[in-house]
Design a protein around this nucleic acid. Structure first.
Lengths: 336, 336
DNA sequence: CTGAAAGCGCTTACAG
DNA sequence: CTGAAAGCGCTTACAG
């Protein structure tokens, strides 16, 4: 394959052993005498031998490749997750094949993954159509959806408790004395946006309140800015806005302070969801709900690799606890 | 490999043709009659055949895999670049094998890349030691360093003109009336930090000035905060600070406003480098220098794939123009 | 422990 | 255009 591709055969010749002996020396449980091993290792070193893992994958049926599908790398939640997940997978001896979502032909992307004989798939953007889910199951390739799920789907998923997190946020805002509370949704077909909205409604209802306004930001920076302008420029302005994720909340805060000339939280409170690194930056100091990204990554890797290593595809759903993170972008409850 | 791994042989049997005919049907320039092709395609469809690209890689010597080595995904410059680079590579028919830098055993990571028979390597974090560079060259695997370089190394690199960008920044600060100008370095052994510092000195010198203070932030958020505290808490405080990248500049701004209670830019000007998305957010509104990430990605992909496709490793260095982006974090020159 | 041999799923000359 | 055959670099029973 390469210019000087040295193979196990070359090493065998130099070490005066069989090619099988070389192979055994380089496979974890291979039975080789100390002497043979030493001879092989030395020959390998002088030749610069490096086992070809593609050939190994071919014969063993194990590529040790995991596909991760991402998008939205402008939303800091995902780069952080991608970094953690890659490290966790590397530590366990797998490599990450990265796929950027290609709007439109998601089908082709999944076909590519399968062609590369990946042993597992993490969907950290978009979800799997039921026909694609079936194809993956047919080939014995486990899939885990990260930070999303499809209610009736047989695909495993890892999420945080978006309903409970949003519910707490509602209670917190009401305790802070807010009376006109609005919501800016993400992508309306996403499970995160839907669950956060549902949990928020629930929290409001438990205190006898309802939503005072609603707009859709589509999880984009620009979409959120437009939503904020629409929602906040009329009369009877909300006194608090729950934005479906932090990434959009920053955009909303920029519009509120820069265009509408309102103070946060004196004139209006803004809260987000995710607790991305920037939420803690002093320029935003955003009150939000923390998604436990490290625990979510752990659960994903565990659920996926259990299936890979047991060679069976099953369905497991993990829902991890979320936690309210109080900072300065929302008025505090009176502590009396 | 998989549960129901259907192979070209299975398709051949069903279509009543040879296995070679199936293979030709699925290889771009393969000569097959229309009739055969149709029969094969139909059989493939009913069986759910998917060519095994691992086997193809094995026999053809072309894995179509490109390794990208990254780190620092908390610095928004890299996620954006990773996304752009992955998309560009996918469009040209390559897949990205992602490697997170593992402090310490960089050697092992590169060995892994080579074992996976990657056709090219992009180093977007760290640089290649000369012995590793030689190993890559020996196997015929081209390498491009992204946003970094080693002066005497034979490895290709793509950077922006850090010297010129920093020089312009110096001129801009001086024109704005600043007289006590300090610098916060990144990692001192990185080419970006060194070049930005050198260009900055040059710009100061051209106006008869010298640096009024210097600290090292190591390109980390916390390191930058510590550097800012040290640099700005004494007497004779600087009236402007050039921070070696935006990521650190945000941290410095937080310390300046949150801890030191100074106004930006009235009391002190802060400028950064990179022009990451957050630099444009109203909470920071950072004056900085834009690295042309899209052009840098294009150059990287072109330089790398040219070598991959011509099967020869050469050395090319691209230095793309940088551009001053004036926002609100530094006092403006008087327009008279 | 060791080696000869089969075989993973393909591509690609080579003859016809 | 088509098929039989060789071979990519390995792993893994199988005998010894």
């Amino acid at each position: 394959m390469n210019k000087h591709s040295v193979t196990s055969g070359d090493v065998a010749r130099l070490a005066n052993v069989s090619q099988s002996a070389v192979s055994r020396t380089f496979s974890p449980g291979g039975s080789v005498s100390e002497e043979t091993r030493a001879r092989v290792l030395e020959a390998a070193k002088t030749l610069g031998y490096r086992p070809n893992v593609i050939a190994r994958a071919m014969i063993s049926g194990r590529s040790r490749l995991i596909a991760i599908m991402v998008a939205y790398l402008d939303n800091q939640f995902y780069p952080v997750v991608l970094e953690q997940m890659s490290r966790a997978l590397q530590e366990r001896g797998y490599q990450v094949l990265l796929f950027m979502t290609d709007t439109g032909n998601q089908d082709q992307v999944v076909q590519k993954m399968l062609q590369y004989q990946v042993e597992g798939i993490v969907m950290a953007s978009a979800t799997l159509s039921s026909s694609l889910a079936r194809e993956c199951a047919d080939t014995g390739t486990p899939v885990v959806m990260f930070n999303r799920y499809v209610p009736s789907s047989p695909t495993s998923s890892v999420t945080s408790d978006n309903i409970e997190g949003a519910r707490q946020l509602a209670h917190f805002l009401i305790a802070g004395g807010h009376r006109r509370i609005a919501f800016i949704a993400g992508q309306e077909d996403s499970s995160t946006s839907r669950d956060r909205e549902a949990g928020f409604y629930k929290g409001l209802a438990e205190r006898g309140m309802t939503l005072a306004g609603r707009a859709v930001g589509g999880y984009s920076f620009e979409g959120a800015a437009a939503a904020a302008r629409g929602l906040l420029s009329g009369r009877d302005r909300p006194d608090a806005v729950f934005v479906a994720n932090d990434h959009m909340a920053f955009s909303v805060m920029d519009v509120v302070r820069g265009e509408l000339r309102l103070r946060i939280p004196e004139d209006i409170s803004i809260v987000g969801y995710d607790d991305v690194p920037e939420a803690g930056w002093a320029g935003y100091n955003l009150t939000t709900v923390s998604q436990p990204s490290a625990a979510m990554v752990d659960a994903t890797v565990t659920i996926l690799l259990d299936q890979v290593e047991q060679r069976e595809v099953s369905r497991r759903a993990a829902v991890l606890p979320a936690r309210l993170v109080v900072r300065g972008s929302a008025r505090m409850p009176k502590s009396d």
